[in-house]
Amino acid sequence: MNYPLLKPKYYLSLIKDLLNFIRCPYSNPLKVKTVKQKVYDTIGLFFIKICFSISIASLLQFIYEPKNLTSINMSERFGPFVLVLVAGVILPLYEEITFRLSLKFKPTYLAVTSGTFIYYILTKAIFKSRISLVDDTFLYRISIGILFMIITYTIIRREKVKKLIDRFWKENFRFIYYLSCVSFAWLHIFNFELSIINGLLLPIITLPQLFSATIAGYTRIAFGFKYPLFTHMATNILFTLLSFIPLD
């Protein structure tokens, strides 16, 4: 039987396809693949991402390793089961909607993404809170996000506006893809202390997130939304479970 995940050449072909996409992003799949092929490719890219993330994390330990305040805060607030649920399911779903859903333009996709992104900015930059924290600012954050979502959808669902944005999306997809990758990675700076050294080292300490975003954006376009979503969930669940292992 054919088991591509056991063949080194298969991973080289995946890396080649990924690099070709990064060099010249396209808004529609160039190849039609079966569900089985998509699953194999997604698993293969997941293994590649994990190997890269572990390698970079190990290297950063020798250079500079800032404390992930978000992870520490969540570990203190949640028990093991809830932590896996929030970190491994809810947050990946939220982040994929925010940064990847609207890579393919539809009025509904862009409206939902706009609302969740506004919620993110309000939470992190304005109210200095946590995405998963239900505090006294939560009602304001969620209400403004939903309101922005409704207003955005009302505007862009109009035929003239829809056609204009659709054309802009197709003509500027390379920029949109790169922006989604960089914004996803660099906004993770809020996971750490907002210090001068962390700001200067931002491209380095968020390198794993940038690599993850390039793969997630590629699989979103080439395979569909559920593939980067499941990969994101699997990654977060894996590292969350590993965090339970005592190192002392």
Rank of each mutant, 00 (worst) to 15 (best):
L133T: 09
L69W: 04
E65K: 13
N28V: 11
I196E: 15
P203D: 04
Y64V: 04
S13G: 00
L5T: 06
L139I: 09
F211W: 02
I197N: 14
R157K: 15
F99H: 05
Y140W: 12
F184D: 05
L83R: 09
G44F: 01
F192D: 03
F239E: 06
K7S: 11
V35K: 14
F211D: 06
L6V: 04
I155M: 09
I146G: 06
F117N: 10
W186F: 15
N68V: 01
F175T: 11
F21M: 03
I118F: 14
P80D: 07
L12N: 01
L5C: 06
Y140E: 12
N236M: 03
I215D: 00
D135T: 02
T98G: 13
V112R: 07
L187R: 02
R167E: 15
Y64W: 11
F184H: 13
T154M: 13
G115E: 01
V32F: 10
Y120V: 07
T34K: 05
D41I: 03
I221G: 05
D166Y: 09
Q61V: 07
L12R: 05
C181K: 10
F168T: 02
L69R: 05
N236E: 01
F175N: 10
P25H: 10
S129G: 05
N2H: 05
F168Q: 09
I189L: 15
P25A: 09
F117T: 10
F117A: 15
T231H: 07
Y11C: 02
L201H: 11
K49M: 15
L30Y: 10
P203C: 04
I150A: 12
K16S: 13
L241M: 07
K36C: 08
I63T: 11
F175W: 11
M149H: 09
N191I: 04
T113W: 08
L194S: 09
R100C: 08
L59H: 06
P29V: 04
F184P: 03
P4L: 06
K31G: 07
F148V: 13
I165T: 05
G145I: 00
I54A: 14
L45K: 03
K9V: 00
T137V: 09
P208Q: 07
A216S: 11
D248E: 11
F47I: 00
L229K: 04
Y109S: 15
I63N: 10
C181N: 06
I50N: 12
L85I: 09
Q209N: 14
L202G: 12
K67G: 11
G88I: 00
C24L: 13
V32N: 13
K67Q: 12
T214L: 15
M233V: 03
Y10L: 01
A111Q: 02
K33L: 13
Y140D: 11
T98P: 04
Y120Q: 10
Y3H: 10
I97K: 07
P66S: 12
F138Y: 14
G88H: 06
A222K: 06
L247F: 09
A87P: 00
A185M: 03
F46T: 03
K162M: 11
Y11R: 01
Y10E: 00
I204L: 15
I22C: 09
L122T: 08
V82E: 15
F127P: 01
T152L: 01
V82T: 15
D136P: 00
Y178P: 01
